[in-house]
Design a protein around this nucleic acid. Structure first.
Lengths: 136, 136
DNA sequence: GTTAAAATCTATAAAAACGATAGGGTAAAC
DNA sequence: GTTTACCCTATCGTTTTTATAGATTTTAAC
């Protein structure tokens, strides 16, 4: 299940991309337009900024804005920052690999075999979609 | 993230399939072989039985056994029973559809558009894999 | 047959982890 | 000095996972 954090983050990003301006947009405006709890959105935008997707400006006329062009923002990156691993089990994760403590051998593990394919499928989708693709 | 319930359920199913006998297998044997909490596994096997994947026999010499052939058990069915919806958001789910209350229009929703593709990718994998495919 | 053992079933609940939200205060820009 | 982003913390609710305790059914031994 997709977390609301990711859902809201994606919506905020697409909203900023659709605005099509470099001017900062206030949190309150995004929250209102996308029906998101403002406080919650606040923390989400913050992590997006810390991870290089957004820039921010304080004070009057401040807000958040996209740093890169929508075409340059891949969904793989967004998903990893907001949702975490793309894989459903750590033992098939590229960026968050971890060995299962209960599994003696990954090569013969059925869960591993299945989830590897699922991961590849998801990865292909995320690689083929940029922020620009989602708003067109 | 895949729940342990699903993970354990898959492991139990593949173990039963690999045994390749119609004889009932005790919960304790499966639990020990797959490093699973026996009591937890107990409830998982129960739901697998209630959903037509397993049969059971009580008393001495009892246990669980596969009802169908491994080739006839599709991962779509297993995943839906153990993990629930395959889609990451209800608004793109085939079997568990639900409208988002915050989203005014699904057709223009970026989350919807992206997660639709992810669902299709996962679905294809689950449809192409039976229990037999996972143990070969 | 009676009994005892072996196993599945049932229900509950506790503990842990996680998700989502709210509050209040600080710092920077204008 | 007003407006806005920033930061920290606490809380509430839900889900997941595991644990506890017993009930029920079947088989097998005697």
């Amino acid at each position: 299940m997709l977390s609301k954090k990711t859902k809201y983050g994606l919506k905020a990003l697409t909203y900023l991309a659709s605005i099509d301006t470099k001017e900062p947009v206030q949190i309150s405006e995004i929250a209102k337009h996308e029906n998101i709890s403002q406080k919650f959105l606040e923390s989400i935008l913050l992590t997006l900024r810390r991870n290089g997707f957004l820039g921010s400006k304080k004070g009057k006329g401040g807000g958040y804005y996209l740093i890169k062009k929508p075409e340059e923002i891949q969904m793989t990156a967004v998903m990893r920052v907001l949702e975490g691993p793309i894989a459903m089990v750590p033992c098939v994760s590229l960026n968050f690999y971890e060995k299962c403590d209960d599994c003696p051998d990954e090569n013969t593990c059925a869960v591993n075999r299945l989830m590897l394919q699922v991961r590849d499928g998801a990865l292909e989708v995320y690689r083929n979609n940029t922020l620009a693709d989602l708003i067109s």
